[in-house]
Amino acid sequence: MTTITLQDNILSKDEIRKKTAKPLLWIGIVSIVMFFGGWTSAVIVSKGASSNWLNINLPISFTISTIIIILSSLSFHYGLIAIKNNKTSQLKWSVIITLLLGLGFVLSQYLGWKELYQNGVFATGSKSTSASSFIYLITVFHVLHLLAGIISLIIVGSKSFLEKYSSQNTLGVELSVIYWHFLGGLWIYLFLFLKYIA
């Protein structure tokens, strides 16, 4: 196969990435929104069709999780502003704190599932209902998506310790921040939905 020389007016691979990475992420986010939208609509349909829908009190841990994830979004955003001003050490701290808060969120969710289980709310089996299964399913799949965010945090963290970012090169941080904010927003929606509508 013949290769060709790229002319000046043609985008290089790096430029194509700069131009397309964010739109790719945003459209990916749309598909995740539709995925959870499918399930939350399913809850509404199931609730409407059921004569004995179980109203479940959410554990207090889920409220704590909400506070944690809001804080993590703030700390990560602080890091983005820092790197845009070329303050690399502040980015490192921001990523570490965000990572710890992210792991704290996962732990808090786990405590929430434990509490639900102890209160006799089961995900599967003969004692479960679709109301109880939905709570586990939706929260667990949110955490699965969050794990992707944690992986991206680890990547951004390692790269920031290797001094790969500067005020001229923030794309990786921006992508990770967008996804992380999205996970926070998604959780707030899911939390309010489960608390007031389900």
């Binding site: 459209i27 749309v30 598909s31 995740i32 539709m34 995925f35 959870f36 939208g37 499918g38 399930w39 399913a42 199931s46 995900a123 599967t124 089996g125 003969s126 479960s128 209902t129 679709s130 299964s133 939905f134 399913l137």
Partner: peptide, 25 residues
């Protein structure tokens, strides 16, 4: 496709859970 295929995925997952993990969606 981006708007509607994820909803089929969410439907299929519920079906997989009903079939294999004892849920009742």
């Amino acid at each position: 496709g981006v708007v509607s295929f994820p909803v089929l995925l969410s439907a299929a997952l519920l079906l997989i859970f009903d079939r294999s993990f004892g849920t009742s969606f």
